[in-house]
Design a protein around this nucleic acid. Structure first.
Lengths: 228, 228
DNA sequence: TCAAAAGTGTTCGTGCTACACCCATGC
DNA sequence: GCATGGGTGTAGCACGAACACTTTTGA
């Protein structure tokens, strides 16, 4: 960083703009989020949501996408701005205003990339978080709530499921995230009435029971609905 | 803004964090928003949403409240974060990431304070905006949508109405903002069933017709409901 | 033939919608 | 007494909730 800039920033305590990227998926029947383990004091041994400072000329949305792709190799998933956290003393290293984003990625595409900047990167169930750095525990809670809410009035589940899926998979995914159950028949009736899915001519293979029909989403793009 | 900082910021495109404050009220049966007229090129003659850079050690929420109070003298109203805009070329003067907030203020408390930094400050109906600077037209559109949505699942109308009001005032306020009508009887039934209002023992005075009972909100604090 | 999950209809209750007339007050 | 908005009840309909048995496949 150039000297005159650094000087001006220190003089006026200009806040730094960062993004936090909350990456959600369903792993092993649980809603999980990607965390990285911290090396630096005072947060050694704690975990945090991945993220970092935005680049110059980089749109904040793109900064979020950059972090998402860096960690998971996935693109073209649902990504949405959550909230901007701007308390003056959130970060002991300096004033950081961070814009949090959340994304939903398919559980069949999961492969986390670690880098040597962090101690490690792992999925954690949102109900069993480790010791968290900063205010990240609250951020995860808020993101979980928002995710639950958005699931009930949009088609964003397209971003969590594989291209083709059974209605049972769709239903249990809703059940896991919304923490409730749905009646099998009522659920079918409802989702099929929404003109949101397309029936394929394929079926499950290799299951020890009657194979289910596979469906896919009509549009793999955010759209509002009255779903559940 | 100080000159040396401004210079450094322009040179290196370091993002500056600002807030934009969208102040809504109902004036003359129309949903209106506070705008200020710009003096500086290239936006002479255009209008913008009030706002400005956050102070050092100032919480961004407080920055929004500061601007709100500066312009309107009101405190203790509903104020909520809308969205953070972070495209790199939004502002020709340099990179600005701005966190937009919106607030609802009572129409009986309106008195705008002008300052000599701006050409003027005025209420404009959201349907008849003047020539707007930056991307502020889009921001107002987004805020209006959010406001409409939030009205249908919360009690934030408490922040727009005077302390005591008639059910007709409540109803027409919803009708103006949501751009639809409600059946008088069904509306009464619904809002009274929500345990959100308290009936006072007062009535309208000086009206040339049967005076309506006055009601007040049980809690003048944000709460979620299923309202309309 | 057995185990396991898929697929399929009907009934009931709740809540939203539509709708018209009398009442209280000021002038 | 007349003009103006306040205040009130009921019937129909749509939608969500509850609920059990038959079908198809692999082993």
């Amino acid at each position: 960083m150039k000297k005159d800039l650094q000087k001006a920033i220190q003089k006026y305590k200009v806040p730094v703009v960062a993004v936090d990227m909350l990456i959600f998926s369903i792993i092993d029947k649980k809603l999980c989020v990607v965390l990285i383990s911290m090396k630096k004091k005072p947060f050694e041994g704690s975990w945090a949501v991945p993220g970092g400072i935005i680049l110059k000329d980089e749109h904040i949305d793109d900064a979020a996408r950059r972090h998402l792709e860096q960690k998971t190799n996935v693109k073209d998933v649902f990504l949405d701005q959550l909230y901007t956290f701007g308390a003056p003393n959130r970060d002991p290293f300096g004033r950081v205003v961070s814009v949090a984003y959340y994304a939903l990625i398919p559980h069949d595409k999961v492969s986390l990339k670690t880098t040597d900047r962090y101690g490690g990167i792992e999925w954690f169930p949102v109900d069993k978080l480790p010791k968290m750095a900063y205010d990240h525990k609250d951020i995860i809670k808020m993101a979980t709530k928002r995710l639950q809410s958005k699931l009930t009035y949009s088609n964003i589940m397209y971003s969590l499921l594989p291209k083709e899926f059974t209605l049972a998979e769709l239903r249990t995914s809703y059940e896991i995230i919304l923490k409730r159950t749905f009646d099998k028949r009522n659920f079918r009736k409802k989702v099929l009435s929404l003109d949101m899915l397309i029936e394929t001519d394929k079926k499950q293979v290799g299951v020890p029971n009657r194979p289910a029909k596979l469906y896919k989403f009509k549009n793999r793009k955010f759209k509002e609905f009255e779903i559940l």
